[in-house]
Every structure is written in structure tokens, then in C-alpha cells.
Design a binder for these strands. Structure first.
Lengths: 143, 143
DNA sequence: TCCATCTACAACCATTTGGTTGTACGTTAA
DNA sequence: TTAACGTACAACCAAATGGTTGTAGATGGA
């Protein structure tokens, strides 16, 4: 489970989410996504637009593809790249989950402790944290 | 930090967006975000929950902090970590931008070039792409 | 056929990452 | 005061990244 099961649920596997955000964490790749949202482009045409080698762009496209953000389709000797709109939604969902968790917390404590929430809890209680270390058992060493 | 301004439309500077997504691209860090959304936690308490050293967790928190996803606040000898809900929204906005670009394209091309448009002409031209390399002149080499 | 394109992929490199240990310093509790 | 706790940070490492060049396989056009 992974506590984040939830998380997992939304965007996919933990690893899938890793790949998704990792792919988005590079300006060149984000730019490729933008260009290929407007229409399909061959890899070489894309490559011509950046100050780097064809091979480098090819690798970026591979990263995007493994993350499920783009799909490739062959047309003759070219490979046309297109952004998959659904994937963008998938990434959003992973974030929405975080946001909703936050909202839930706000709900629950709408009046309780003010700023020092922490103070209260842990105190020794320590309740909160105790942790669930379990949870991570598996997620930790992911990379 | 970050957010200084302006910059690229969505979530801030290109680099800020890089840091944002990079920070989200690791299951351990996402888990930290989840835990700190529920309430503040000290770094050592967080560390106790993962199968790695305190220093490693400390580094993860630093990455999250530089991305603007969490804030730290001192309480005595502890450093309490808390997820910043606004940051999540910022990340969402970056994605929304992509999605809206996609939507716009669908609008505009309700029937125009499909796949072969390009084929036809000189190949290239065609609508989609000529690369207008509009500007990207330099977004590429960011890292 | 011959040649120019577009891709795919391997090999190599410099820099970053994610982790570890070890040390130093401020704070809290005995 | 002294000891324990929580944090900060430096030094070091293996592996992953982002790039480069070079070679080779398909495909399309002259």
C-alpha cells in the first residue's frame, strides 16, 4: 500500500509518478511538450529548434515517452511526436490529491489549535507521528 | 524566492518550475509533503520514518524548501516543516497552461491540418510547424 | 542505383543526485 | 555543568543525467 496508495491510485505507480514529474522537470522537455501540443512534429524538426544535438533531443523525447507524456507515430522515415493530453491530466491528478489532503486537514482543524498545531500534538503524545514508518518501508529507497 | 516575478507565465521562472517538478519527482519527497500537509513535523521526526539517514532526509527537505513546497519554522532546537499549499497550486498552474494550450489547438484546428497536412507540401510547411521557433531561442539549455 | 534524410543506439564525459559518515554547534533537560 | 537531542554542514561515493560524437539501418527521391 503504500499509504500513498492514494497517490498511487491517481497518477499511477509511484515509479510512474516519478517518471512523470522527472520528465516535467526540464525546460527543454516542457518546451517540446508545448510544441507538440500544437501539432505533431518529427524528431529532427524538433531538434532543429534547440541548440543541442539531434541525439540529445532524441533522448529528451524518449524520457517524455517513457513518462507517457507523448506518443510517437511513424510516417515514412520520420517519427512524429505528439503530446498526450491525458497525461497532463494524470499529473494534475497527483497534485490534486495533495491539495485535497491539505483541504481535509484544514477542515478537520477549522478551529482547533491555531498556529501551533504541532505543539499540541506531538507533544508527546507524539501521537501523530509515530509513525507510520511502516509506510515507507517500501517507498523510501525508491530511486 | 522564487517567484520573483514575472517571468514565464505559469509558475514562475523556468528555473523555479524546474525545481518544483524536480522536487516532486521523488517518492520520498512526495511522502514528506503528504506528512507535512497533515501538520508540522520536525526534521528528526520525519527522518525516523524513513530507512535512511537523518542527513539524507535533511537534504530532501532542503530540496523541497528550495522549490518552495515547504517552509521551515524554528521551535526551540527543532525545525518544524510544513507543506505550503500555495506551492501545490503553483505547480498545477504550470500544468494548466499546457492543458489550455492543447485546448486552444483543438479549437483552432477543428478540421485543418490533420496528419498529412505536412506531407503535402514542401514538407514542411504546413501549418503546424514551421518552427517558428518562436523564441525558444534559448530556453533549452537550462540545466 | 546512389545519395540524402531521419532514426536508432553505443560509447564516452562532466556534472548532479541521493546517500553515507563524521564533526561541530545551539538548545533542553538532568 | 553536563549530557542528550536536533540540526547544520563538509567530505566522499556510486549511480544517474544531460550532452557529445560516431556508426549503422531504413526510407524516399534523383
Amino acid at each position: 500500500m503504500v499509504v500513498d496508495g492514494v497517490a498511487a491510485g491517481s497518477g499511477g505507480t509511484d515509479e510512474a509518478v516519478d517518471r512523470l514529474f522527472h520528465a516535467l522537470a526540464d525546460a527543454t522537455r516542457r518546451d517540446i511538450l508545448h510544441r507538440c501540443v500544437r501539432g505533431e512534429l518529427s524528431v529532427s524538426r524538433l531538434a532543429a529548434a534547440y541548440p543541442m544535438s539531434f541525439a540529445a533531443v532524441q533522448k529528451h523525447v524518449t524520457v517524455l515517452e517513457r513518462a507517457g507524456l507523448v506518443t510517437k507515430r511513424r510516417r515514412g522515415r520520420e517519427q512524429l511526436v505528439r503530446t498526450d493530453p491525458d497525461a497532463v491530466g494524470r499529473a494534475r491528478r497527483a497534485l490534486d490529491e495533495l491539495e485535497s489532503a491539505w483541504r481535509a486537514r484544514v477542515d478537520r482543524m477549522s478551529g482547533l489549535l491555531t498556529d501551533d498545531a504541532a505543539g499540541a500534538g506531538p507533544g508527546h503524545g507524539t501521537g501523530p507521528a509515530p509513525d507510520d514508518a511502516r509506510t515507507n518501508t517500501e517507498k523510501g529507497p525508491d530511486r
